Amino acid sequence: MYRLVAAYNHPEDPEKFLEHYRNVHSKLALKQQGIRNYEWGVCSTPDGSTPPHFLVAVCDWDSKEAMLADMASPEGQQGAADLENFAQAGVSFDFYEITKDI
């Protein structure tokens, strides 16, 4: 399995961000043909302090090649282009091959 983790910085308008993410961006992500798992959540901390990121999304594919094919597809390109519509505060991406010890 190959994973992409997207960590979104805190937006100026959290409710507007969530509205767009929930109703537009997440639906675009699910249109990718090779995606095997997609989950996301708004970040929090046990002590109530401000977390480093506002929202984190995790997407899994069977392989790096499958992820690259999805990203190059019209659906993947549409999702990438949508970032400018809601992620003005910034987003960072981490990619890795999943290793499981259990």
Score class of each variant (00 low, 15 high):
residue 26 S to H: 01
residue 8 Y to H: 15
residue 35 I to E: 03
residue 80 A to Q: 13
residue 72 A to Y: 02
residue 34 G to F: 02
residue 34 G to P: 01
residue 55 L to M: 06
residue 64 K to N: 11
residue 80 A to L: 13
residue 43 C to G: 10
residue 100 K to F: 13
residue 44 S to R: 08
residue 66 A to L: 08
residue 70 D to I: 00
residue 56 V to E: 04
residue 80 A to N: 10
residue 68 L to M: 12
residue 87 A to G: 01
residue 44 S to V: 14
residue 97 E to N: 11
residue 21 Y to G: 01
residue 12 E to P: 09
residue 82 D to A: 05
residue 53 H to C: 08
residue 51 P to Q: 13
residue 81 A to T: 10
residue 71 M to T: 06
residue 6 A to I: 06
residue 13 D to K: 13
residue 49 S to C: 13
residue 83 L to G: 03
residue 22 R to P: 09
residue 27 K to C: 03
residue 39 E to G: 14
residue 90 G to K: 01
residue 11 P to K: 03
residue 61 W to H: 02
residue 44 S to P: 04
residue 62 D to F: 04
residue 34 G to Q: 02
residue 94 D to Q: 12
residue 92 S to Y: 11
residue 2 Y to S: 08
residue 58 V to T: 13
residue 6 A to H: 03
residue 28 L to Q: 05
residue 21 Y to H: 05
residue 77 Q to R: 09
residue 46 P to A: 15
residue 82 D to I: 01
residue 5 V to F: 07
residue 8 Y to N: 11
residue 31 K to L: 10
residue 11 P to M: 06
residue 91 V to F: 04
residue 36 R to W: 03
residue 72 A to F: 04
residue 45 T to P: 12
residue 25 H to Y: 12
residue 7 A to Y: 05
residue 25 H to P: 06
residue 98 I to V: 15
residue 30 L to E: 14
residue 63 S to V: 08
residue 75 E to A: 13
residue 47 D to G: 14
residue 78 Q to S: 10
residue 100 K to W: 09
residue 85 N to V: 00
residue 33 Q to A: 13
residue 100 K to I: 10
residue 31 K to C: 09
residue 10 H to F: 14
residue 74 P to C: 10
residue 100 K to G: 13
residue 86 F to M: 06
residue 87 A to T: 00
residue 32 Q to K: 07
residue 13 D to S: 15
residue 58 V to Y: 10
residue 81 A to K: 11
residue 17 F to N: 00
residue 44 S to N: 07
residue 99 T to M: 14
residue 3 R to M: 05
residue 76 G to H: 02
residue 29 A to D: 00
residue 29 A to N: 01
residue 23 N to Y: 14
residue 98 I to Y: 11
